[in-house]
């Protein structure tokens, strides 16, 4: 199980993490952050695999990903796209 954390105050709501999350568990929140954007947030962390794709695609380095088991995503040979 992975755990994603968002530095919400930095998110510009571009939605690229939403677009590329393989589990489709990221959405743009209804509320506004301090920058005036709808920030990205994870809806169901129990389904997060910690693959890190959201963080790779985030242009603002908003997302950190913790991984608590198995090989980290870069070494699993998966083809995310």
């Amino acid at each position: 199980m992975g755990l994603v954390t968002f530095r919400e105050e930095r998110c510009k709501g571009c939605g690229l993490c939403v677009e590329f999350c393989p589990k489709k568990i990221i959405v743009l929140a209804d509320h506004f952050n301090v920058l005036g954007f709808h920030p990205a947030t994870a809806t169901d962390l129990s389904r997060c695999t910690g693959c890190g794709i959201c963080a790779w695609m985030c242009p603002d380095v908003v997302i950190e990903v913790d991984w608590n088991g198995g090989k980290p995503p870069g070494e699993r040979g998966e083809s995310p796209a």
């Binding site: 930095r10 939605g15 695609m57 985030c58």
Partner: peptide, 15 residues
Amino acid sequence: PFHYCPGCTHGIIHR
């Protein structure tokens, strides 16, 4: 924080 527009991929390339 980067000053780039939302979704600008400069940020990815910087990283």
